[in-house]
Amino acid sequence: MSIGHTAADASQIGEAVAAGARMSTHLGNGAHLMLPRHPNYLWEQLAQDELWSCVIADGFHLPDQVLKVVLKVKGEQALLVSDAVAISGLEPGVYKTHIGGDVVLTSEGKLHLAADPRLLAGSAQMLLWGIAHLNRRGLADFPTAWEMASTRPARLMGLPVAEGLSIGAPADFVLLDSMQADGRIPLRQTYKAGKIVYDRSQQSL
């Protein structure tokens, strides 16, 4: 059970944790533009030791300072999510979506409502983008950023892949090329249960 975009007060968040909530979804996003200095639901979720924090690190949803604070406070309980929508990977332009209507994908990779550039319409970037952003901005080294998007979420959910590349664990892994000058991390191959399911040289299998 996870606390999503919320307007809960501190006592309600405490009650949710006591009832079994274990994660904050998109922490810092879907939030009011103006909040009380303290208490507020962002501080309270960070302060709850039982809550893992899931953040979007696409460079647009959260400033680096917020990401840095979440990583410092939550440590091994900091997780990475993409919030990628259906138009991820498409060229910059104006698109129509079932949520938000007309949206704009900029050349920098930001996705916002056409009617108001200040309001995001999800993200057009996948997890590799977020991993690269954390690493490129010096917020996390590559192994830590990778774990935030892979074995840590699996550990929270009690999945066997939480063991990573260990004897007896599912052989789910990817093969990457070195980070490029523009910060992107090219994906070469993807394996599921030891079998290749994607090969860039063949596009797909």
Score class of each variant (00 low, 15 high):
residue 99 I to A: 12
residue 197 V to E: 05
residue 76 E to L: 10
residue 68 K to H: 15
residue 112 H to N: 09
residue 185 I to H: 04
residue 4 G to R: 02
residue 110 K to I: 05
residue 94 V to K: 15
residue 19 A to L: 12
residue 42 L to F: 14
residue 200 R to S: 08
residue 92 P to Q: 10
residue 166 S to G: 07
residue 137 R to L: 01
residue 3 I to N: 12
residue 14 G to V: 00
residue 49 D to R: 14
residue 19 A to C: 04
residue 129 W to A: 05
residue 178 S to P: 01
residue 33 L to C: 01
residue 12 Q to F: 10
residue 135 N to Q: 05
residue 124 A to M: 06
residue 186 P to K: 02
residue 4 G to W: 03
residue 127 L to E: 05
residue 59 G to E: 08
residue 133 H to V: 02
residue 193 A to P: 03
residue 80 L to D: 07
residue 1 M to G: 12
residue 47 A to D: 15
residue 189 Q to K: 15
residue 133 H to Q: 01
residue 55 V to K: 08
residue 86 A to F: 09
residue 114 A to K: 14
residue 78 A to H: 09
residue 195 K to H: 11
residue 100 G to V: 11
residue 190 T to C: 06
residue 133 H to F: 04
residue 159 L to Q: 10
residue 39 P to K: 01
residue 88 S to R: 01
residue 33 L to E: 08
residue 168 G to P: 09
residue 62 L to K: 14
residue 117 P to Y: 04
residue 168 G to F: 07
residue 71 L to E: 10
residue 204 S to L: 11
residue 134 L to G: 02
residue 115 A to Q: 14
residue 178 S to Y: 09
residue 177 D to T: 01
residue 48 Q to N: 03
residue 41 Y to I: 02
residue 18 A to Q: 11
residue 95 Y to H: 00
residue 87 I to H: 06
residue 118 R to L: 11
residue 102 D to Q: 12
residue 60 F to N: 11
residue 117 P to D: 12
residue 99 I to P: 01
residue 123 S to L: 10
residue 68 K to M: 12
residue 201 S to W: 07
residue 169 A to G: 08
residue 12 Q to G: 10
residue 69 V to A: 14
residue 103 V to K: 02
residue 204 S to Q: 12
residue 179 M to Y: 10
residue 111 L to E: 03
residue 73 V to S: 09
residue 14 G to I: 00
residue 36 P to Q: 00
residue 62 L to S: 13
residue 136 R to D: 11
residue 170 P to K: 11
residue 11 S to C: 10
residue 154 A to G: 13
residue 22 R to Q: 05
residue 191 Y to H: 11
residue 164 G to D: 07
residue 60 F to A: 07
residue 55 V to C: 14
